[in-house]
Amino acid sequence: MKLLEPPVSDYSTVFWDATREERLLLPYSGDRPFWYPRAVAPAHLDGDGEVDWRPAAGTGEVYAVTVVHRPGPGRAAEDGPYAVALVELAEGVRMLTNVVGCPPEDVVVGMPVRVCWHELSDGRKLPMFTPA
């Protein structure tokens, strides 16, 4: 599967290094997780902006899903339609991701999922989800 390989930011090295060992980390502001990661935590979390990373359970459920028939940036038409979903993690944050490991049209809102990994060219792994 062809896709756009994400760049690494200075602040996110810890996240991407953990993916090499198939560990999913979430950024926290105090006791509150957030997604997507930022160098400074979102102001609405009322923290001081400092970010620390903690392990995520790696489970969640599908909040919304679309099967993309006309491929998006970086994707190839020959790889066929694929499911892009917002997955609500057990920790309460929503993550844009792919749900793989089943026909894309079988992915439905409310479906329980768990993290799986797609290896990138430099050994990092991109978190995706699969039916639990």
Binding site: P7, T66, V68, V84
Partner: peptide, 19 residues
């Protein structure tokens, strides 16, 4: 978005509205 979302191939804008 380039780091955290572009890899998943959401075709915008229609993919966002589809969600």
């Amino acid at each position: 978005a380039a780091e955290w979302e572009a890899g998943y191939g959401l075709r915008e804008p229609m993919g966002a509205y589809a969600l």
